[in-house]
């Protein structure tokens, strides 16, 4: 669990760290869209090279990065297996009951594997190089146009940043409660399914009680400092579009055009 990288922030001063969060957020979306245009080896290779470049620029060691996304491999493999076993078309290679493997489904499975990998890689780079609060700020900036339609962008961003802010706190608390119940003889993560579900009660009840207490304390503290949601709020940190963002976008756009050029139409 401690090696799990997805959704974690790694402090640093790299190129990717210094980009503005809204640009990183949009760039990730754009990259995911481009992924769905790729449909042959050359186009996937172009995207893999691009993402490798981004990882190197982010200053995270590649081996550490790969180790960190390894826990997600099982999810990918499961999806790929479903795809391989249940899709049809092409030359039949093997079949058993409802399952069949064709050359087409193998190729598709391979592509889906790479697609998943690319999406996980770009989103992991995003969260590794951007603090949760910066991501919330980025979302707020990206959604700003919706304000015209009376969409509560600021409230949404506040909710998001509070939720993200409390993830580590609740993780810590979960750890403490698990330890306390372990000392009282609870065995987490072993035994039958029924046993495991039963073991979750002494963990979840205190965790929820704690979360509700946090929420109450936080709202009291916010009100005590005069918080209302209707005010126009200024920001301590302002993320400006920089040269680094422009250059990154140009590179990504170029690769996007390249993918469109070399994909099978």
């Amino acid at each position: 669990m401690s090696n799990f990288l997805f959704g974690r922030y790694l402090p640093g001063e790299s190129w990717v760290h210094q980009m503005s969060p809204q640009s990183k957020l949009l760039l990730s979306f754009y990259f995911v869209i481009v992924i769905f245009f790729a449909n042959n080896i050359a186009s996937y290779a172009a995207l893999l090279i691009l993402i490798m470049g981004v990882i190197i620029l982010s200053g995270v060691s590649i081996s550490y990065f790969l180790k960190g996304i390894r826990p997600l491999i099982w999810l990918i493999i499961f999806t790929v297996l479903l795809q391989i076993l249940f899709s049809s078309g092409g030359k039949l290679l093997w079949h058993f009951g409802p399952f069949s493997i064709t050359d087409q489904s193998l190729i598709n499975g391979g592509f889906i594997f790479i697609r998943f990998l690319l999406i996980i890689m770009i989103s992991t780079v995003l969260t590794l190089t951007t603090t949760p609060l910066a991501i919330a700020d980025g979302v707020q900036t990206v959604l700003k146009p919706l304000k015209g339609f009376h969409f509560p962008v600021d409230t949404l961003a506040l909710m998001l940043s509070i939720a993200l802010r409390f993830v580590p706190t609740l993780m810590d608390e979960m750890e403490t409660i698990m330890n306390a119940q372990r000392s009282r003889g609870v065995d987490f993560g072993s035994g039958s399914l029924k046993h495991r579900v039963k073991a979750a009660v002494p963990l979840l009840v205190p965790l929820f009680t704690g979360a509700i207490n946090h929420a109450e304390n936080l709202s009291t503290a916010m009100e005590a400092r005069g918080f209302t949601d209707s005010e126009h709020r200024s920001k301590y940190r302002i993320y400006r579009w920089q040269m680094k963002d422009t250059i990154s976008w140009l590179v990504f756009l170029a690769v996007g055009v390249l993918v469109l050029g070399i994909r099978k139409w």
Binding site: E173, T176, Q181, S183, R184, P202, V205, P206, G210
Partner: peptide, 11 residues
């Protein structure tokens, strides 16, 4: 083992 703020473990 009595942890810090052990009342948090009640359920």
């Amino acid at each position: 083992m009595v942890f810090q703020f052990p009342e948090k473990q009640l359920f």
